[in-house]
Design a protein around this nucleic acid. Structure first.
Length: 575
RNA sequence: CGGGGCGUGGCGCAGCCGGGAAGCGCACCUGCCUUGGGAGCAGGGGGUCGGAGGUUCAAAUCCUCUCGCCCCGACCA
């Protein structure tokens, strides 16, 4: 490709709208342009990179035995009503009507659609297992899109769905996808980690997320320093350590705490440490109102609590509901005398003589004790894990790091097949529900994550496997016929070898070309300049390392091919 | 949805408080010159100031409404 034929509008300055590095660089490198909040156009360079990632995905999905399909992105409401998600999904589902007032939505994910296909087309165990995938545009009307294509409303996703006859097969399918995902992200040049994840609105019993390690990531991962336990903070468990406090049980007392509501205020006012406090938080699941107790220096993990309750929805109670059930304003709730189901974090088990709200305005209780003063209905793990907490699987400690979730795999079980009647006949002729799994990869997010992880102050440093071109040829002076002839010759030779080459044939000064070359991050740069050319050589520079070598003109294709295949690794061919 | 901020040529911004011919840098076009890290000189094109309404002799500037965008939070396969 010649630069003059390519629409590659690079920007010298950082667009004001961009916050994170990958977003800035994608805009500056002319990969994307914003259309509306969370909606982007991909320009030629961006499309080339997207296609590279998609190609890797296709190769690995096909290798794993999955078959590509393409479902519609406009989905009939009826399917969503069957699964129950028409109501559950909320405002994130973009609902539309056609001219006949029939209801549809833009697909945010395709479990319903694929299950519909399965129930129509799959009859027999002989057809199983089967795994179908597509690479397609999704739409999720996110509350707050941000960070460019990292969290967009419209985005390209690879979604795959597996159907198995039994649990054993479903597990096999799941781990097959796990392995395929690891290969996809490895080949894309990412440093990532697979972690246990929450299942959210997709549902199902078990899930892993593939996290790209990056400080700007929106997700936090807790991982053990000793064993291989790693989980999204939403799900991360905390090891259960009962520390029986060695002190005598004292008499319950009521103390005035005028206007002291927060943990900080109360601990300071009463001159006790936060570890001696118990926070009482009221939640409403729509079906019941419960009180959750955590230690004063701990935070509640709503995902874990919701999962424990088996609730689809759950909200922290509003001021009105709090006043209604505790008979006190917000900030003075406590478990003593509270007529609600009480769920307490494990950390409370050994506590003695602690402080709680009194369910009276401006009043707290001190020397509160379990059993004597109130009953806990259930002890469980409901607190947010934090740095240094005990690992749930071994004596190690948890560490936190930030990551970008580029892929997630789920074991769905029969959630959708039972709701929608997707069954098959087993060898005995019995009708059974299909066992499903689903597997997603955000293609644009993978590209953004790759850039987030591979850039320097001068621009993007593409891993060669997803680079828009392998080689950039940079003739220093367009008016010098010899330089241009040499550049053209190399260009032709490399193209014949199947190398993807961009020839910067713009009539720009060298500085401009060098800056753009660094910005768009092509892995190999060939600089054709007067001095070296007189010696029959060109300069080859590796974008990532900055390493420079002088290469004889005739040797260029060979050296370039070698460098490309070295960087590619993993048996990926150039052509 | 709550809080904060911003909308002025393609990009980055100034002007607004204290109304009085729309400016600057970059980019773009033409010419000269230059050619190993975003050159220089000269000439030039392009915006009606997010939109609507109002106040005023006069509005980018003041007032009202509205739309959009960004950030924080809530939320989130």
């Amino acid at each position: 490709m010649r630069y003059y034929q390519l629409l590659l509008p690079t920007l010298r300055e950082e667009p004001a709208e961009a916050e994170v590095e990958s977003h800035k660089l994608m805009l500056r490198a002319g990969m994307i342009r914003k259309v509306a909040a969370g909606i982007y156009t991909f320009l030629p360079l961006g499309v080339r990179v997207m296609h590279k990632v998609e190609r890797i995905i296709r190769e690995e999905m096909n290798r794993a035995g999955a078959q590509e399909v393409l479902m519609s992105c406009v989905l009939p409401a009826d399917l969503w009503k069957e699964s129950g998600r028409w109501e559950q999904y909320g405002r994130e589902l973009l609902r539309i009507k056609d001219r006949h007032e029939r209801e549809y939505c833009l697909g945010p994910t395709h479990e319903e659609m694929i299950t519909d296909i399965a129930r129509r087309e799959i009859r027999s165990y002989r057809q199983l297992p089967v795994n179908l995938y597509q690479i397609q545009t999704k739409f999720r009307d996110e509350v707050r899109p941000r960070f460019g294509v990292m969290r967009a409303r419209e985005f390209i996703m690879k979604d795959a769905y597996s159907f198995d006859a039994d649990e054993e097969g479903a597990q096999k399918s799941y781990w097959q996808m796990f392995d395929a995902y690891a290969m996809i992200f490895r080949r894309s040049g990412l440093r990532f980690r697979a972690v246990e994840a929450d299942t959210g609105l997709i549902g199902g019993s078990f899930s892993h997320e593939f996290m790209v390690l990056a400080d700007t990531g929106e997700d936090v991962v807790a991982s053990c320093g000793e064993c291989d336990y790693a989980a999204n903070l939403e799900r991360a468990e905390v090891g259960r350590v009962v520390e029986e406090a060695d002190e005598e049980i004292k008499g319950l007392e009521r103390v005035d705490t005028p206007a002291q509501k927060s943990v900080e205020e109360v601990t300071e006012f009463l001159n006790v440490s936060p570890q001696r406090l118990v926070k009482t938080i009221i939640f409403d699941t729509g079906k019941e109102v419960i009180a959750a107790l955590v230690r004063g220096d701990h935070e509640i993990n709503e995902s874990k609590l919701r999962r424990h309750l088996g609730a689809l929805q759950m909200q922290m109670a509003g001021d009105e509901l709090i006043a209604d059930v505790t008979h006190a304003p917000k900030g003075f709730a406590g478990p003593v005398g509270l007529d609600l189901k009480i769920i307490a974090d494990y950390a409370l088990e050994g506590m003695r003589n602690f402080v709680t709200g009194a369910n009276e305005p401006d009043t707290h209780l001190i020397n509160v004790n379990l059993e004597r003063d109130f009953q806990v209905d259930e002890f469980t793990d409901i607190r947010l894990a934090k740095e240094g907490d005990p690992c749930p699987r071994c004596p190690g400690r948890l560490q936190m790091f930030r990551g970008i979730a580029v892929g997630q795999i789920f074991r769905l079980g029969t959630k959708y097949s039972e709701a929608m009647g997707a069954t098959y006949l087993d060898p005995q002729g019995r009708e059974k529900p299909l066992i499903m799994g689903c597997y997603g990869i955000g293609v644009g997010r993978t590209v953004a994550a790759a850039i987030e992880q591979n850039h320097d102050e001068n621009g993007i440093i593409f891993p060669i496997s997803i680079a828009p071109f392998h080689v950039l040829i940079l003739p220093v002076n367009n008016k010098d016929a010899q330089i241009m002839r040499a550049a053209e010759d190399i260009y032709t030779l490399l193209q014949e070898k199947g190398v993807e080459v961009l020839l910067d044939d713009r009539d720009e000064r060298p500085g401009v070309k060098f800056k753009d070359a660094d910005l768009i991050g092509i892995p190999l740069r060939l600089t054709v300049g007067e001095k070296n050319l007189k010696k029959g050589k060109v300069e080859m520079k590796i974008r990532r390392s900055g390493e420079v070598v002088l290469v004889e003109l005739e040797g260029v294709p060979e050296v370039a091919m070698r460098m490309i295949s070295e960087q590619l690794g993993d048996g990926v061919s150039v052509s």
